[in-house]
């Protein structure tokens, strides 16, 4: 239970930070032309990133001991990337079911995968650093 609480806390925190980071990265790359104001995006990217981080952090807390990888940050990157890929695959299924509503974009997908990797790395570093402090 303690590990789940730690996973959710660090996942939520790193998710909010990564959400904001990907907002700035998107503003630099211009992969998607943002339609909402900066203030609105700061809020929605924080909430969206935080929720994604909560799911991955909770999952990490449950499965990390079963993974055959030594380094914790590498484990986090693998799991976070895997979760993003699962959602992307679900998106592909939705595109097949409702092609007029859901369209994928390669540039946005690459940026999204980078988001998951950054988030996983950040979560892994927070977890390891937290362990050292405690």
């Amino acid at each position: 239970m303690e590990k789940l609480a730690k996973g959710l806390t660090l996942g939520g925190l790193s998710g909010v930070l990564s959400g904001w980071l990907i907002l700035f990265i998107n503003m630099l790359t211009g992969v998607f032309v943002l339609e909402m104001s900066f203030g609105e995006n700061l809020l929605t990217f924080g909430i969206g990133g935080g929720l994604f981080g909560l799911v991955c952090g909770g999952l990490m807390a449950v499965v990390h001991e079963k993974l055959p990888i030594k380094s914790f940050p590498v484990k986090a990157v693998v799991i976070f990337g895997f979760v993003w890929v699962l959602f992307r695959l679900a998106g592909i299924v939705l595109s097949g079911l409702e092609p007029h509503r859901f369209h994928g974009d390669i540039g946005q997908s690459l940026q999204g995968f980078a988001f998951a990797i950054i988030l996983g790395g950040m979560f892994g570093l927070f977890w390891v650093r937290g362990k050292k402090i405690v």
Partner: peptide, 15 residues
């Protein structure tokens, strides 16, 4: 609509 920009920015399919 609320999470439209976020969804696109992290590569999820949308209209």
């Amino acid at each position: 609509d609320t999470f439209h920009d976020f969804r696109h920015s992290i590569g999820m399919p949308c209209h």
